[in-house]
Amino acid sequence: MIRCAVIAVVVALLLPAGAGAQDMSVSSVLIEGQGWQLIADGYKFTEGPAVDADGQVYFTDIPNNRIHKIGLDDKVTVFAESTAATNGLMFGPDGLLYGCRNGDKRIVTYDKDAKVQTIADDVNSNDLVVAGDGGVYFTDPPGGRVWYINQKREKRIVAEGLKPNGVILWPDQGTLVVTDGGEPVLWTFRVERDGALTNKDRYYGPLQVPAAGGGPGSDGMTVDAVGRLYVTTRAGLQMFDPTGRLGGTILKPHPGPLANVCFGGKDLSTLYVTAGDKVYKRRVQATGVRYARPK
């Protein structure tokens, strides 16, 4: 065994830089015999899965104006009512649930009693990501923009000229990724110290598209601890390695839409997807990420 390890190390040292063609396949993430499991059903359109500090997953039913909570026992309860079509959700390092409350054009936080506080207003929004330092990026599809709200709750536009939908940070928060459902790629930006986004490029791609035509319909995203990225699309849940190469597509749990994804559960090793009128989960060999606060 030790000899094998030594040989492996020696081989690794001998390989030229060109040996980066090794793969990170979807089969190494899936668990044989563990498929999607239906958790909740009977909603109008589910979105915004977000995991809290305990591993419970919250999701929104946009047309019904409710946010629900899935307990660790898989029991679903109502967390908030009259949510004004709240869409994308994520918990921040402060334990608050951040939401894209697009019905009244606000970005808000919900505390544990679902009490609402506004952190930005007069904006369109679809999805958001909350960084470890409390900064918030959110997408504005009608405006073709990405906004940044800093810790002082000042908002500004940090990217323009794209049709953004989902948004996520890498585990180390140095790169921001944005989906654009009509493009066969995902956009990446370098995150500057002041929250600015630079070096826009088509880093992830090409995405799988349905053979019948149209764009990939890429929507929500999540990342795992080793830097793999998962994006919901019409073709399924597509998984990319940290160098931007498609590692494979996880089948959709049903023929309908697949809108968003997050890791949940006590150990953050269960994928949750919002899928039309339903929510599904699935155990995988990967662990999600909570963005670290700056030291």
């Binding site: 830089a17 980066g20 140095g174």
Partner: peptide, 11 residues
């Protein structure tokens, strides 16, 4: 500091 550079090789 503490962030990884983005490797552009495959892209």
């Amino acid at each position: 500091a503490g962030q990884k550079p983005r490797q552009n090789r495959s892209f």
